[in-house]
Amino acid sequence: MAVAAAQGVRLHHISRETSDLNRLGTFYQEILVFERIESPKFPDFEVVWLKLDHIYLHLIERNPQSKLPEGPFSAPEGCDSVDPKAISRGHHLCFGVSNFDSFVQKLKEKGVRTFETTRPDGKTKQVFFFDPDGNGLEVASC
């Protein structure tokens, strides 16, 4: 039996590049209750680090020289005009919540466009939506 190249592997953090750190940070703090934590000071760019339990989200100031698009979808002023049904099944982050119905209600109260469905097994509810930079998000019932 071969020995694995890496041992004790776990997810360390997720990074998202953005042109507006405060807007994106506030979104994740208000919608998914991430806590803003101390962030290092880099000489060439700004960052905001967020934490939720054991999940770390690193928001990084977009490199203006980057050839990458603003996000997976190009909609003016965020992604309100993009249908959440269009979120690619392979390009999104998923979080689980224990208060699914009230969470979805909070999204709607904040004007976030959503797409709700239930997995084929009928046991798990899902809601799909975009963050302000057009990154696809899913929240599932736990």
Results as ranks from 00 to 15, higher is better:
52 L>I: 00
53 D>W: 00
53 D>M: 03
53 D>E: 00
54 H>L: 13
54 H>M: 10
54 H>C: 11
54 H>F: 13
54 H>A: 12
55 I>A: 05
56 Y>D: 01
56 Y>I: 01
56 Y>K: 02
56 Y>P: 00
57 L>F: 00
60 I>A: 07
60 I>V: 12
62 R>Q: 13
64 P>C: 10
64 P>F: 10
64 P>I: 09
65 Q>D: 14
65 Q>E: 14
65 Q>H: 06
66 S>R: 09
66 S>W: 11
67 K>G: 08
68 L>G: 00
69 P>N: 12
71 G>T: 06
71 G>S: 04
71 G>D: 04
72 P>F: 11
72 P>D: 06
73 F>E: 04
74 S>A: 13
75 A>D: 15
75 A>L: 15
76 P>G: 12
78 G>E: 11
79 C>A: 15
80 D>F: 15
81 S>Y: 13
81 S>L: 15
81 S>D: 15
81 S>R: 15
81 S>K: 14
82 V>A: 13
83 D>Q: 08
84 P>I: 12
85 K>R: 14
86 A>C: 11
86 A>R: 12
87 I>P: 01
89 R>G: 04
89 R>F: 02
89 R>Y: 02
90 G>Y: 06
90 G>Q: 02
90 G>P: 00
90 G>F: 05
92 H>A: 05
92 H>T: 06
92 H>E: 05
93 L>H: 01
93 L>M: 04
94 C>W: 00
94 C>V: 01
94 C>F: 00
95 F>C: 05
95 F>N: 03
95 F>Y: 08
96 G>K: 05
97 V>P: 01
98 S>A: 15
98 S>W: 12
99 N>D: 15
99 N>Q: 14
101 D>Q: 03
101 D>H: 01
102 S>A: 14
102 S>V: 12
102 S>P: 04
102 S>E: 12
103 F>M: 12
104 V>M: 07
104 V>Q: 03
104 V>A: 05
106 K>V: 13
106 K>M: 14
107 L>I: 09
107 L>M: 07
107 L>K: 06
107 L>H: 08
108 K>D: 08
108 K>H: 11
109 E>P: 06
109 E>W: 10
110 K>G: 10
110 K>I: 09
110 K>E: 13
112 V>P: 02
112 V>Q: 05
112 V>E: 01
112 V>H: 03
113 R>C: 09
114 T>W: 05
114 T>H: 07
114 T>D: 09
115 F>C: 05
115 F>P: 02
115 F>G: 01
115 F>K: 02
116 E>D: 07
116 E>G: 07
116 E>F: 07
117 T>P: 00
118 T>C: 09
119 R>P: 00
119 R>C: 02
119 R>S: 06
119 R>E: 10
120 P>F: 13
121 D>Q: 05
121 D>C: 02
121 D>F: 02
121 D>S: 05
123 K>S: 03
123 K>V: 03
123 K>M: 11
125 K>F: 04
125 K>W: 04
126 Q>E: 08
127 V>A: 01
127 V>E: 01
